[in-house]
Design a protein around this nucleic acid. Structure first.
Lengths: 210, 210
DNA sequence: TGTGTTATGTAACATTTGTTACACAGTAAA
DNA sequence: TTTACTGTGTAACAAATGTTACATAACACA
């Protein structure tokens, strides 16, 4: 038994299902920055995250990104469920935020288990629920917050999933994720530093006021 | 058999389920402007829309609204499923856009049918999928479009669900739905009129270029 | 050590959106 | 008709965000 599987999913699934997952699922490790799912991909597998974190992005018609949310261990990507069910293309991009370990479950099994295991059905529905809430939170963030607040929230979320208040990134990277320009990010970061919320160094941002 | 039930859901559900829906569901008519679900409500029923349209709104911390999308006949509100499952409060507000006819299904039945009828399970999952896509489209609109484009899209969507290119509303109403100010709406509407996309009269907006 | 590359800081300006204030038009009811 | 109310138009200004341009700092490595 993969130890992490037991740890993060053991309380959700009965032993029989855990064994099936281990037997049938494909274990995989991907490095930071790896694109797990891209927009337009047909999804044949559903990922269960064992460790690490993944950021989920939406793309505009010019090919520029916007972050929706991060997912972590114990999570799955409800979007993939959606796509598997409907046999449609992915609407989102999923990129490893850190080095990430996961188990891939083939679609057919996913469907089969919906009927076979009540705990799996609950998990899938629960995942939908969680993701729906995440999407609503993303909407709140985009629609109701100003850019400086969005930036701070982004940094805090990033610190959270990385379990490190020293964030390794560039202003350009942040600008991509927030769908704005590098200059705007630099300007607001400077303001946050002046307000003693963060400390800036090249390639690094330290969150002071977490 | 309620005629509309057969018409909009007949191709989805087997006869046995349709009969159960008719026997157990509560038929209801609500007038335009009626709040079907409010934020914080505990949901005990899931609505199936037979005719009319409903607008789904999100609220900011000051109590101001933002429209997410419209739903129509043949649709249900996936948010309610979410809430029923998790026994949590509603995250959204649902207001009748026009006079609306619907059937309310009690939560218990909803759960029961998930196991009993495959077509119901598919419908619920399909609804999740649809709503997820609507939420993503809402995000695209809010994040990627400028206010004038959002306004035009809003007017077109409204004309669509009302099946009428003459929209009966006020600038203030629109401002609420788009989470901006009346002055901004008036300004942009004037611009759209100048560009021959719409015609303005008091309490009415005629869409020219649909 | 010098050189090219990437990252950051910042000014100056443009555009978009939000706010305040007020005039006036259309409607309903006294 | 007068009056009060609601809805619309618009100016003037404020704030937020986006863009262009350029200087300099930090680093990578030949």
């Amino acid at each position: 038994m993969i130890e992490a599987l037991k740890r993060y999913y053991g309380y959700l699934f009965e032993d029989e299902l855990l064994e099936e997952i281990e037997k049938i699922g494909v274990y995989r490790e991907v490095p930071e920055g790896f694109t797990l799912i891209d927009i337009g991909d047909y999804i044949k597998n559903m990922p269960l995250i064992l460790s690490g974190a993944v950021k989920v992005l939406r793309e505009d018609d010019k090919g520029d990104d916007l972050i929706l949310y991060f997912i972590e261990q114990g999570d799955t990507c409800a979007m993939t469920i959606t796509c598997c069910m409907g046999d449609t293309k992915s609407e989102i991009r999923a990129v490893a935020e850190t080095d990430t370990k996961l188990i891939m479950i083939p679609v057919q099994k996913m469907q089969e288990w919906m009927h076979k295991y009540k705990s799996w059905q609950s998990f899938v529905l629960q995942s939908y629920h969680e993701r729906m809430k995440e999407l609503l939170e993303a909407i709140d963030t985009i629609a109701f917050l100003k850019m400086d607040e969005r930036l701070l929230k982004y940094l805090r979320d990033k610190a959270m999933v990385n379990r490190d208040d020293l964030i390794h990134t560039t202003h350009q990277e942040i600008a991509h994720d927030l769908h704005t320009s590098r200059v705007v990010v630099s300007r607001l970061l400077k303001k946050l530093e002046t307000d003693n919320k963060i400390k800036l160094q090249r390639n690094n941002i330290k969150i002071v006021d977490l």
